[in-house]
Write a protein that binds this DNA or RNA. Structure first.
Lengths: 334, 334
DNA sequence: TACCTTTGCGAAAACGTTTTCATGATACTT
DNA sequence: AAGTATCATGAAAACGTTTTCGCAAAGGTA
């Protein structure tokens, strides 16, 4: 430990400049000295200190990821996608997760701030105003699934509204009139969009929209379970149930099956996200496929591009399309 | 961007030493100058560059995590636990995931190496010999669930053998004789332990052990599905099925239900890990609870302890106990 | 031969901090 | 009043690199 470029230089009988030149091939160097340097490097087991290089180059080769507290499978899928793509570009990933409130996001950003070359921020519960405030410093940032509307920032999100509209529409087409809905966290932008799409579709496409069909939730399996329970106790006239995400739908499914409600015969069910396990539940879950891996890839590409050429492309918003995935739980396989 | 301590010093009309002293409260300083420094800091929006401090202090405040490619919920649970605990100690998390082969682990370690104060390595497929090789440098390391036997390293794992033995024993006690088993990845140490425990329990406690009851697998839902299919087609005499992990069990469950096999009446089922969704499947999954959050906490504490006092405690192995969780899928709720 | 260009290489600056060291001033002791 | 301990503070070293700068030697041209 602790062998520096100076040690190598001394061992090889050259200056540190020469060692650097050999290692980085940044200038031609006498073959004899070249050889001596290489043997010295091998003998001493030298490798350059990345921190020193970071300080000098003013770049760390690290990308910071700041995430809200999202559910297991989604989190894993996203993070693995980010890690893969980032590594392809020779970067590393500094992670800070489980943030909910503004203060936590701020703190996380502050602590990561100067250690990374760019940020990936996913903060569906943030307000656009806060986004501005967070970004005083002009370090490259790409927002993911975050309500940032103006042209100052790169934002990548996916079509929460369109997906939920299509899903609701699908159930309406299958003849369901009274479709219940389990909401996501009130403050979350994506949850709001999904709720709005559900309402719009219900009103515009001839569903029987009643406020009593809406239940509070927070994207968790527990809330799905409880909401399904409430639903069965309060308004048995519903023939279909949409959960704001798959995890919540799985919780609801658990209750329904436990209560002897047949899915989809007595109650159709659908979720959102298409997490890997959605196809492995019984009945398999009709849902909206969010291409997390692709999104992760694109987000990283965007960020890397901005890092390597800050002024290049103009700030852009990009909305990923999503796909309706019809499986057994909506009764479409029967 | 780019406001340094020098700018603050100039703005306040003092030396950089004084600024440093004020900010770190490392020595008393004239109240008047103190005030001037603080206003300068505010005015310029100065914050110290962590990279420079890292170089000087020879410590980055970052912990590196190197993980194999593990399944979604387990990965998420582990990483969130690590992140939480690490942040409590004021550290950050540098993540490198999805590594399988020796070469990948080596590369990951190399690229992270000098940027972190310590490593958390989870590598169930590594051989003890390789572990040594990886650790030439004497940077603090804690292995998690990795087959490292000697006293050179800190290793924390959980009782794969005991858990699976208890689980098999549970099914035997409930009267099952021919219990099938879906294996994990052949090279993985934890998968081997679980397989060994299954075999030992079968032989020692009076099960009808036949090699034909064992099926290949890789901890995935897909393999569980296929193994269940193979099982039903080859040896219908089995009355119970154990999967090496929950994800695999969920895949198997999906096939069984689809094939009209009643669980647990026709075929009892059990998994391992107790991932969050295990209690939300129908029937809920009998399994072995691995306290991932606790393990994550302990691992971090161990590592931080070693970082802050490298020579202190002797190298220690710690084995976390696991608990049998009996739910519906083993027929015990009936 | 004189001059200019190329080439190889070492010295030193730079990145942004913290900390040690030296220095002058002030206060305390005898 | 003289010597000594205390104190605040600025200059400079240190962390480990890359890169610019300058210099000397070598080579080429007129």
């Amino acid at each position: 430990m602790g062998v520096t470029i100076r040690d190598v230089a001394q061992h090889a009988g050259v200056s540190i400049s020469t060692v650097s030149r050999v290692l980085n091939q940044t200038a031609p160097v006498n073959p004899e000295k070249h050889r001596r340097v290489m043997t010295a490097v091998d003998a001493l087991g030298y490798s350059p200190n990345p921190v020193a290089i970071s300080l000098l180059k003013q770049a760390t080769g690290i990308v910071g990821v700041v995430l809200p507290s999202i559910s297991g499978e989604f989190f894993a899928e996203l993070l693995l996608g980010l890690d893969d793509t980032v590594q392809e570009h020779g970067y590393l990933l500094l992670v800070s997760a489980s943030h909910r409130h503004e203060a936590e996001f701020k703190a996380a950003l502050k602590s990561i701030s100067r250690r990374v070359d760019g940020f990936l921020i996913m903060a569906p519960e943030i307000t656009p105003k806060i986004a501005h405030e967070l970004l005083e410093e002009d370090i490259p940032v790409v927002f993911v699934n975050t309500p940032v509307d103006d042209d100052m920032f790169d934002v990548i999100h996916f079509d929460n509204y369109g997906g939920m509209y299509a899903l609701t529409s699908h159930l309406l087409e299958r003849g369901h009139q009274r479709i219940a809905f389990i909401k996501g966290p009130t403050a979350a932008y994506d949850a709001q969009d999904r709720l709005r799409a559900y309402r719009d579709a219900m009103r515009q496409l001839g569903g029987e929209y009643v406020e009593a069909l809406e239940f509070d939730g927070d994207f968790s399996a527990e809330c799905g379970y409880r909401a399904a329970q409430l639903l069965m106790q309060s308004d048995p006239q519903a023939t279909a149930l949409i959960a704001a995400n798959d995890l919540c739908a799985q919780g609801a499914l658990r209750y329904l099956l436990l209560a002897g409600v047949r899915v989809p015969e007595d109650m159709a069910l659908a979720g959102f996200d298409d997490i890997p396990s959605a196809r492995y539940s019984t009945p398999s879950l009709t849902t909206v496929r969010v291409p997390i891996r692709n999104i992760a890839m694109q987000v990283v590409h965007h960020l890397i591009a901005r890092i390597s050429d800050p002024g290049a492309c103009s700030r852009r918003h990009h909305c990923h399309p999503v796909n309706l995935v019809i499986r057994e739980s909506s009764g479409s396989a029967h």
